[in-house]
Amino acid sequence: MAETTAISQTQETVPAPRREITLIPPVDVFEDENGLNLHADLPGVAPDQLDVRVDRNTLTIEGKAVIETPEGMEALYAEVRSPHYRRSFTLSSELEPEKIEARLKDGVLQLYIPKRESARPRKIQIKVA
């Protein structure tokens, strides 16, 4: 693994108080020199059903998919068995959680978590003598 994994998944040691099944959305996490990007698949989640929060150093993404089902519909086959999504990550201290930018479009959440100015790579000028 890379030596500077700035974002890591937290083990959910405390069992969720609810008994609902929650789905773990697939994510891509990648870093550029200014910050971290996290893209998560949350099909069915509308902006008002999405909750992205940072509690101390834990980032939690939670969402509820709204699936319009006609009355009296019977399930014939289901691969998605819950409308609840949840996933948490720990953020390292060089990130600025108060400056997270979030965008949700077509069921994909895009988060951008900038690094503190001091944590960004500085270009060091080499003077020619």
Binding site: G44, I67, P70, A75, Y77, V80, K105, V108
Partner: peptide
């Protein structure tokens, strides 16, 4: 033709007396 776990996109199918309802979970398309 059922796909294994983790196949993309996931699919749910339901029926009503009038129709078959297919839900394809295909975000970002």
């Amino acid at each position: 033709r059922a796909a294994g776990r983790g196949a993309f996109p996931a699919v749910n199918v339901g029926v009503t007396p009038e129709a078959v309802e297919v839900y394809v979970f295909v975000p970002g398309i």
